[in-house]
Design a binder for these strands. Structure first.
Length: 497
RNA sequence: GGGCCGGUAGCUUAGUCAGGCAGAGCGAAAGGCUCUUAACCUUUAGGUCGGGGGUUCAAAUCCCUCUCGGCCCGCCA
């Protein structure tokens, strides 16, 4: 019996007073399940803290005031002109949302809700515009040399002479990566800048710009009372932004750095780490199209944060769903993954994959097929949800050999069957009335034996007659879920062909 | 060049903090049943714990070293 990693973290934090667990993701593109790990990790610890009766809150800060770094592959070329502007100030790439940032933020927040992750949500641009960062900006500007020294000492990087901890947004061209700070006025709370576009002006400390990332991060810790924050291994390296942030937090802002929890990336099986820039991603929405939210939670929660997750959306994903449904994994991980008090789902996902291919999108047929196979169908909503999951999984991720189609007419290849195989089908057609799945399966073997036929050939003949291919789902259960008159008719037809 | 994380059965991994018989799931094999046919049950096989060295009565676990994979030490989450 091992203590779950979330409980280990919670145990460490619990006696240090009220906890604020912070997460932050930049909505610069579709949020993928690798990004998701940050929020999921914090939420698991949050739940573990609550389970021990500790006082805790979970916050999410959308870093929507970060600038667009480059033209991502999913953007139209016209967006080149927005590179360098804060995400919150760029128009929606599809014209449907208030801004670029909101376009990616909205579906992400909707996914969080679906996953039963309910943080207090902040938007960085709002925090800046409201003036929350004003004092932190003043401090950073005044102690610019101390910050530069810390950056040098910790990361080895010497900042350029014109460096400033504040990035002003040019009022003319809208960019933050083209401006240089020329001076500041603490009383008026403004920063003077010169932009390479030719404009020079004055930016407000209330939304006219932002602190550079390495200062912005530690600056927000005291402002939001952050005591724990998970972050990717990229920040964790020595000399990385946590190291510099820790010193800046302690020496400049007089606040102890939050307890770090470092998480690894999620890899796509055989393809490497998920990365928006490479387009190698499975978005949260894409995943929720295919599995229930609990299973996505379970995927992340069952693995320790510092271990990378090898994610395979093909057959192994079915195993993961079934492992969750049967409550076969680590019990604490299952508990932390649960949403509400749902009973285990009884129909194996693998069987759903067979059933939806028989039903071909007809929900009534699907329910009939499930009932013929002996499944209880009262939890209709869930069953139909799973059916949609199975259909999308088949279309997107299923290997070829699990796909099949019940042929409307008799496949012509049946003509090539030998007389003994046809005889087998005929005899089978006479013996299966009233039998249920297991008995049909047994009967196939019995018929083959009676006729002195290799059972393998009889199975192949059956698959050929119904699917036009030589293999398929487990035959007894497959035939049982089809309409019985149709089965008998098809077997007779095939025998005469 | 320096640092961080990871490497345990074919696959996914627990166990490493705090040394004490290397475990599980999936897959595979055999059987249940004269039956390989995607959901059953039982059993079995499968391991130089990435390599080497050291400490110890005892090392997957601690120390040193090498190696492989990923990431960072410019910008950036």
């Amino acid at each position: 019996m091992t203590i779950h990693w979330a409980d280990v973290a919670a145990e460490r934090l619990a006696d240090r007073g009220p906890q604020t667990l912070a997460t932050g993701i930049t909505p610069s593109g579709p949020v993928h399940i690798g990004n998701m790990r940050e929020v999921m990790t914090a939420e698991a610890i949050y739940r573990a803290l609550q389970d021990r009766g500790a006082e805790a809150r979970l916050i999410y800060i959308a870093d929507n005031f970060d600038r667009l770094r480059r033209l991502y592959p999913f953007l139209q070329e016209s967006f080149e002109e927005h590179v360098g502007k804060p995400l919150s100030e760029i128009p929606c790439p599809e014209g449907c949302c208030a801004s670029y940032a909101e376009h990616f933020l909205q579906p992400f927040l909707a996914s969080l809700e679906e996953l039963d992750i309910r943080p207090q949500v902040f938007r960085a641009d709002q925090l800046y515009k409201e003036g929350l960062f004003v004092d932190a900006i003043k401090t950073a500007l005044l102690r610019r040399d101390d910050i530069a020294r810390i950056l040098k000492e910790v990361s080895g990087r010497e900042v350029p002479s014109h460096w400033s901890p504040f990035d002003a947004i040019c009022k003319d061209c809208g960019r933050t990566n083209t401006t240089r700070v020329a001076g500041f006025d603490l009383d008026r709370e403004t920063v003077d800048y010169v932009c390479s576009c030719g404009y020079s002006g004055t930016a407000s400390m209330r939304g006219g710009g932002k602190l550079v990332w390495r200062v912005d991060w530690p600056a927000r810790w005291p402002l939001l009372h952050v005591t724990m924050e998970p972050f990717g291994k990229d920040h964790a390296t020595s000399g990385g932004s946590y190291d510099t942030g820790k010193r800046i937090s302690e020496e400049i802002y007089g606040y102890p750095a939050p307890h770090p929890v470092i998480y690894e990336w999620i890899h796509l099986k055989g393809k490497g780490a998920m990365h928006s820039s490479t387009g190698l991603v499975v978005t949260i929405k894409e995943m929720l199209d295919v599995v229930p939210p609990e299973v996505l939670r379970y995927l992340i929660i069952r693995t320790k944060p510092e271990k990378h997750i090898e994610f395979d959306p093909g057959l192994p994903l079915l195993t993961l769903v079934d492992e969750y449904d049967q409550r076969a994994g680590d019990s604490r991980a299952l508990e932390l993954s649960a949403i509400g008090e749902a009973e285990p789902f009884q129909i194996p996902f693998r069987h759903m994959v067979t059933a939806v291919q028989i039903a071909r999108g007809d929900d009534e047929q699907l329910i009939k097929a499930l009932e013929r196979s002996g499944y209880e169908t009262s939890r209709m909503g869930e069953i139909l949800g799973r059916a949609r999951n199975a259909e999308i999984w088949l279309a997107r991720y299923a290997p070829q050999n699990v796909r099949f189609q019940v042929q409307e007419g008799l496949p012509s290849a049946v003509k090539n069957l030998g007389p003994d195989e046809k005889e087998g089908l005929r005899v089978l057609s006479e013996r299966i009335s009233g039998l249920e799945a297991q008995s049909i399966h047994d009967e196939i073997y019995a018929v083959a034996k009676d006729l002195g036929l290799d059972s393998k050939r009889l199975f192949q003949a059956i698959y050929l007659a119904f699917l036009g291919q030589r293999q398929g789902p487990k035959a007894g259960w497959f035939l049982a879920s089809l309409d019985r008159d149709f089965v008998v008719l098809r077997l007779e037809e095939a025998a005469r062909a």
